[in-house]
């Protein structure tokens, strides 16, 4: 589809928080996302599952504008994410547009990616001060409140190297929230953690779901957790959504052969 065929904005009565419209992504000849269509509603928690290499991370990274887009358009709250209007048609966006759009999205990574030369508190304050232009005092209040929420307030002056994986991940969540995003992305945030600390991180995400009206997209291998907290499960297979459904339906009565295979394989591994 030509870029000119896409709407400059989505109509007010059809504005999901996130819409992937015919999105394609490839590395050379390897097609990673193949004509992807996906809507995520305001306040919805969607879990993305699927075999390794199926394109789950890529979906999140494209939303975070960490990867370029090869085809299609992504809309955030009705506005194109990596495109902008010029002379009545969409063209690839410039940096200013990307920065404006990125402001509503936050992301947590598998390997936390905390800044090693800053304390937990400084990590959280960095964005609010440097990017949002908050005063140090405001940023500190906001960050301390979030560190309290993730249970890390008593470690706020520690550098990441002195924190366990679970603690680092909780700081990373606080750091992302400090930017007050409307959409949060979690890419296997518990995969690099020791089993005994996974709970402390999932607990934080559980609270986010319960107490905030964030729109969330989470890639995870923890089926039980996904089932507990998601509004919807998206099963990716080879760059396409093979099946999506509400958790109960998805786990108790999967429709597709591949989904059933995958769920069996995961169960066997447990």
């Amino acid at each position: 589809m030509e870029l000119s065929a896409y709407p400059l904005e989505l109509p007010p009565d059809d504005r999901p928080m996130v819409r992937f419209m015919n999105v394609t992504k490839s590395y050379g000849s390897l097609v990673v996302l193949d004509d992807l269509n996906l809507d995520i509603q305001r306040g919805e928690m969607v879990s993305v599952i699927g075999p390794s290499g199926s394109g789950k991370t890529t979906v999140l990274r494209m939303l975070m504008t960490l990867e370029s887009i090869n085809g299609g358009v992504i809309y955030i709250d009705g506005k194109p994410l990596t495109h902008m209007e010029r002379k009545g048609v969409l063209v690839p966006a410039d940096e200013a547009h990307l920065r404006r759009m990125r402001a509503s999205i936050g992301m947590c990574f598998q390997h936390f990616n905390l800044f090693p030369h800053m304390t937990a508190l400084q990590n959280c304050m960095e964005g609010p001060v440097q990017v949002l232009g908050l005063s140090k005092a405001e940023a500190r209040d906001r960050s301390e409140e979030l560190l309290k929420m993730v249970g890390m307030i008593d470690k706020k002056d520690q550098h990441p190297s002195r924190l366990s994986g679970g603690q680092q991940q909780r700081v990373a969540i606080a750091r992302a929230l400090a930017m007050r995003p409307r959409i949060m992305l979690f890419d296997e945030v518990t995969s690099a953690l020791d089993p005994e600390v996974i709970g402390e991180v999932t607990e934080v995400i559980r609270r986010l779901v319960a107490e905030h009206d964030l729109t969330m997209l989470m890639v995870t291998h923890q089926m039980g957790f996904a089932r507990d907290i998601s509004d919807r499960i998206c099963f990716f297979y080879k760059g396409k959504i093979e099946e999506q459904a509400a958790p109960e339906q998805f786990f108790t009565n999967p429709q597709r052969e591949r989904t059933q295979q995958f769920l069996r394989a995961v169960k066997d591994a447990d």
């Binding site: 975070m64 990574f109 905390l114 800044f115 960095e126 440097q130």
Partner: peptide, 25 residues
């Protein structure tokens, strides 16, 4: 690479990314 990506996710400018995160490391 994760450090660059974290900066991007925090919407930092290239300048801040270099000056505050990358060069200090």
């Amino acid at each position: 690479k994760g450090q660059w990506e974290a900066c991007r996710a925090l919407n930092m400018t290239t300048r801040d990314t270099y000056a505050r995160i990358v060069l200090p490391q």
